[in-house]
């Protein structure tokens, strides 16, 4: 109970460092979710609606990447962006941008696989019906997205949930630098290592509150639209 009290006290104390950590967490999660969805939603739709040579291999590859351990993803991105790595000249290591890159490596396969299986099973009747009505490709796509918004929003929220809760990759490439790349999960890890368990738990509760608020807001938006 102390942790709950501490969590609310901390949240409403408007502590500058905590607000900064929340800000970085939301910024990182928003951009990694957005980029993953920009890549994964069309790719998943393509996989779900088209047959092509090597499709089975691509699906297996994506399923394998879904199980990629976050620390391995972090390590790959670290080697890519370290000073002697192929992208070292970009000087992006230990920034929020490279944390977004690492998270995209983890989340894009999830978005792609979920979208693909959804489109294969659930969107097929919408596409067939729309095409059967003689609608153009653009109108069919619009109708499919409109009919699938509930499911697609759950894919996006799933991606956001993965992003906001991830710790392994972001701690490797972000370095958990105070005021710069520290996010909720790496802050929790730090406080736990320091032995501040109740403070770490308080941060965990705040993380849950943020995740719940984002989910509730998204669900509300989707419901509002579908009711209208």
């Amino acid at each position: 109970m102390d942790s709950f009290k501490q969590a609310f006290d901390l949240l409403f104390s408007f502590d500058r460092e905590l607000l900064r950590i929340i800000g970085v967490t939301l910024r990182m999660s928003f951009f990694s979710t957005a980029v993953s969805c920009i890549i994964g939603l069309p790719l998943g739709t393509l996989l779900g609606t088209h047959s092509f040579r090597g499709k089975a291999f691509v699906k297996k590859l994506i399923n394998t990447l879904m199980g990629l351990p976050p620390v391995v993803a972090g390590l790959i991105v670290y080697f890519l962006f370290t000073h002697y790595g192929p992208l070292g000249k970009l000087n992006m290591l230990f920034t929020v941008r490279v944390m977004v890159v690492a998270q995209c490596l983890l989340i894009t396969p999830v978005v792609t696989a979920l979208t693909s299986s959804f489109v294969e099973e659930r969107a097929r009747p919408v596409i067939d019906t729309a095409k059967g009505m003689g609608l153009s490709g653009r109108k069919t796509l619009f109708l499919t997205l409109s009919e699938s918004r509930g499911m697609l929003s759950s894919v996006v929220l799933n991606a956001f949930g993965r992003s906001i809760a991830e710790v392994g990759a972001v701690s490797i490439v972000g370095g958990n630098i105070q005021w710069k790349t520290r996010v909720m999960t790496t802050a929790i890890m730090l406080e736990t290592n320091k032995g501040n368990f109740s403070f770490a738990l308080a941060l965990g509760i705040i993380l849950l509150i943020i995740a719940f608020a984002v989910n509730a807001a998204a669900s509300f938006t989707v419901k509002e639209k579908s009711d209208g």
Binding site: P125, V126, D128, T129, A130, K131, G132, M133, G134, L135, K139, L143, S146, E147, S226
Partner: peptide, 24 residues
């Protein structure tokens, strides 16, 4: 010419019957 196709599984789009008829 134009081909129209009614699949075996009928699908109900969101909205009223009128809305369904007026799609496109």
């Amino acid at each position: 010419g134009k081909i129209l196709f009614m699949p075996q599984q009928s699908y109900a789009f969101r909205g009223s019957l009128k809305d369904n008829l007026l799609i496109g």
